[in-house]
Simulated assay, not measured.
Amino acid sequence: MSAVATLRPLGIDNTVQVSQVTHRLALGIQWLDALTQLPVAGDWVNDLEAIGTRPGLLRFERHPQARQALRHAGRLARVLPLAAADKVATPPADVADDPTNFVVRAFARRDARYADYRSDNDPRQYVPRRLSLTPVQSGGVPPSSLANIRTAWLWPGATYPLAANASAIRGCIRRGASLASAVPVAWARVVVTRPGAGPANFATETPLAWAHGDDRGEFLVVLGTQAVPGGVVLPATIALRLWIFLAPASVLGVADPLSGLPLEVAGSDALNEVLSGTAMPAGHVLEAAFIDITLAPGRVSGVNDADLLFA
Rank of each mutant, 00 (worst) to 15 (best):
P161K: 07
Q17M: 11
L146M: 14
R194V: 12
G217W: 06
D269E: 14
P142T: 07
R8A: 15
A236D: 12
P235V: 06
A115H: 09
R150T: 08
E264K: 09
G277H: 00
A115M: 07
G260D: 11
L246Y: 03
A197K: 14
E205P: 09
Q20T: 13
T134G: 02
D33Y: 00
L240W: 01
E205V: 12
V192Y: 03
Q37M: 09
L286V: 02
A227E: 02
A106L: 08
G56V: 07
R189T: 04
R216L: 10
L179K: 09
G52D: 03
I293C: 04
R174T: 15
A83T: 02
A279F: 00
V251H: 12
G28Q: 11
Y126L: 13
N121C: 11
G224M: 01
L242I: 00
N304W: 13
A83M: 01
L275S: 06
P55W: 00
P39G: 04
A288L: 12
N201W: 05
L82T: 10
E61Y: 07
L261C: 12
G298H: 02
D98N: 09
R189H: 05
Q137W: 03
V185Q: 11
D292S: 04
W210C: 04
R24L: 15
G224N: 00
Q37T: 08
V104M: 06
A288N: 06
Q137C: 04
T159S: 13
L146K: 10
V21G: 14
P39W: 02
S138C: 05
L27G: 07
T193N: 10
T237A: 11
V95D: 13
S178G: 09
A247L: 07
G230V: 07
F60S: 14
V191R: 08
L38S: 13
P297N: 02
N304A: 15
W210V: 01
Q30H: 00
V254T: 10
V228Y: 05
